[in-house]
Design a protein around this nucleic acid. Structure first.
Lengths: 135, 135
DNA sequence: CCGCATCCCTAAGGATACTG
DNA sequence: CAGTATCCTTAGGGATGCGG
């Protein structure tokens, strides 16, 4: 793990390039929320607290195993709270913390980007695959 | 795969919640760039074109296998160009496309977020693990 | 220098069945 | 309802060695 910050002399042509710090720190976080389900969960919880099976239904296609694990991860990172009401049947509510809520804005920036360029990317893929198939 | 857009009546308490569309479309894209290396590559290429081993060195800790695969993925999605100069020894340059470059902005939004809340998240994890260990 | 092919091991993740 | 536990299959990813 290095990501050398010195030695920027190698190449510096086209763009402004105002990054260079906090790159390696971003990766682990992006992976945390870049997994198959976490963003979906955050998105749904952005609409207010949800119960376990409510989440499961609204997300669609997730197993309870993965929902549990994903929620645990988000809870662990302080993005989501888990509130148990020990009634019968038991009731558990999940909600975004302030931290989790603050993630929604940058997330939507990516969302916008993805939505804007979705077709372009699909086209690029199709194109790439087509000429790859033609050897 | 559903993510029902209707039936928002279930819960709508705390936040403004201006999302609800393009959620399922975001996930695959986030996974594409949320893998272990892609963002790092995009970040480094943000500083200008790089050769293969140049990238490898600057990223640090990546195997050439994964670098190749990641670059192929990025190329396939039209985020990166691959330019071969058939000299001896051969020379291959990678650079961001306009599309790839446009990704840097939203990416840095997440980067900022991650950097800002890094400590908080670490603390939350430590806290969670501590009380989990205490059963 | 670039990168494909191979081997191999681990983690991710789905399906199902069972508990408080 | 809200999980936990188990099984099993696949994808991710490192190490190494060869080839243009």
């Amino acid at each position: 793990m290095s990501l050398a910050h010195k030695d920027v002399t190698a190449g510096e042509a086209l763009p402004p390039a105002p990054d260079h710090a906090g790159c390696t720190r971003v990766a682990p976080i992006l992976q945390r929320i870049g997994d198959k389900w976490s963003i979906l969960i955050v998105m749904v919880l952005g609409g207010g607290p949800r119960r376990f099976n409510e989440l499961k239904r609204q997300i669609g296609g997730i197993s309870q195993r993965m929902l549990t694990l994903s929620l645990r991860g988000l809870e662990r990172d302080g993005l989501v709270t888990r509130t148990v009401t020990p009634s019968i049947p038991p009731r558990v509510d999940y909600a975004l913390t302030e931290l989790g809520d603050s993630l929604r804005a940058p997330m939507q920036a990516i969302g916008m980007w993805a939505d804007t360029h979705y077709e372009t990317i699909q086209a690029a893929r199709a194109n790439f695959d087509r000429r790859a198939e033609a050897e």
